[in-house]
Write a protein that binds this DNA or RNA. Structure first.
Lengths: 245, 245
DNA sequence: TTTTTGTCAATTGTTGACAATTTTTTTGAA
DNA sequence: TTCAAAAAAATTGTCAACAATTGACAAAAA
């Protein structure tokens, strides 16, 4: 092995990822970060210029994202960042709740002691974050808590679908929904989930996880309604939402 | 461009759908019909020649199918029909069961009288098909029964995911699993589902639908084990499974 | 014989060009 | 001025060609 570890890493990355993949990640990143807004058209030429590639990989990446639910395509008009309605967002929450229920039921029947410890550790850290009102940390830990539960359930399809749904939810405007409001409630739910999982109680774990996501749905809907109200009062019309920057 | 019946066919479709879409459907059709076998590589040049298009649309279609779960891609090696393990198939069944549970719970709370009549009609037709041992008709009706329940539940994300999962299941070799075996059982389950839905009992409908899919999973696993046994005895190795025709 | 190296055909990855379509701008008449 | 038709520009859809990579096979070396 003549090369340094760094360069072999790079080589491996370059070999395992095609240009299309890199472009797909970049578009995804821009959508999730808000750089590409909901309803906005992807200008293939411009993006190709910015990224220094031709339109082929761009279009391939977009096809992938269409199937992944982040873009839609209209023939002869192009690719657009998918804009989802409030109902769509609610539907996604329902599906996610259903899948987390499955994760809970599955994991309760096969969880190991180290996994329990791992989850317990996360819950305790969330406790600290809650006390010190560190929302950023709480958000990150919360996400990891759910990801670990899905990972431990060991169902690749479940994992892939949950990942996609999480990204789709970002399509709905109003990021940073988890503003302290339901923090305490949320963590008490986590403890309940952990208890049921540790006890190996499938039914309780399933119900607790499903209820947890549905509670998140209610919090989301409430926060959204509030934002919509504020927008209503500030009289900021959003009729240009479906246009390109 | 030389005119043939094939190219006019394509042209007609071209108004509303792009070439990529048509190609994607064609590849999907070939996979589901068994013309493209599990593990087989998609030869871009050959397929482009057969369909009378260039490689661009072929590759775009393949990117979509990768995200849809029907293909996988290896850089510099090409697109391959995804081959899934028995565990993967089981995982898909579990997810599907979970989603049908959601469909049941949702629909029980909002089902209308005409929808009940529609489902009842399907169940009765399945009864007839069962009596006359018309497996073909039963299979088709069974599929419609499930599709209608998903439609009536009115959750687009749920519908899209279920559709994708159904296609993925076809990736597992051994089509025509529903060989009469569990026919009677299956239909009695349908009646139970219908009763719960008509009564508006969310919990019962959810459980009945989840149990129904899981029973299907057991039937599938049993049939698969049987087929595997037969293959074992007939000593037909499948080492060329991952190769092109 | 076994392993390594070099060559070559086949195939994928990417690009730039052109045709078809849509969007924008301009023009001209009421 | 206002509106609709025509012209121009911008953009997408598709293709064909080129570059890069792979896998197979033969030749050379160990």
């Amino acid at each position: 092995m003549p090369d340094s570890s760094k360069s072999t890493d790079l080589l491996q990355v370059l070999q395992s990822r095609s240009l299309s993949n890199a472009v797909q990640d970049e578009i995804e990143r821009r959508i999730l970060s808000g750089a590409f807004r909901s309803g906005q058209r992807i200008n293939e030429n411009r993006l190709a210029g910015e990224l220094g590639v031709s339109r082929g990989p761009i279009r391939e990446a977009c096809r992938g994202l269409v199937e992944g639910g982040l873009l839609t395509v209209i023939v002869n008009r192009g690719f657009f960042v998918r804009s989802i309605s409030l109902k769509d967002a609610g539907d996604v929450y329902d599906v996610r709740a259903s899948l987390m229920r499955l994760a809970g039921a599955t994991l309760a029947g096969r969880i190991t002691q180290p996994q329990i410890e791992h989850l317990r550790d996360l819950v305790e850290k969330m406790n600290s974050a809650e006390t010190s009102e560190d929302f950023e940390a709480f958000y990150s830990l919360n996400r990891e808590f759910h990801d670990r539960i899905i990972d431990f359930a060991d169902n690749d399809r479940l994992r892939a679908l949950c990942e996609g749904l999480a990204k789709e939810l970002h399509l709905y405007r109003s990021r940073s929904i988890l503003q302290g409001g339901g923090l305490h409630l949320s963590n008490s739910e986590h403890r309940k989930i952990l208890r049921a999982l540790a006890a190996g109680d499938r039914e309780k774990a399933a119900n607790a996880l499903e209820a947890h996501v549905l509670a998140g749905k209610r919090r989301f809907l409430k926060a959204t309604a509030q934002i919509d109200n504020e927008q209503l009062y500030s009289n900021q019309s959003s009729k240009d939402e479906a246009r390109e920057i």
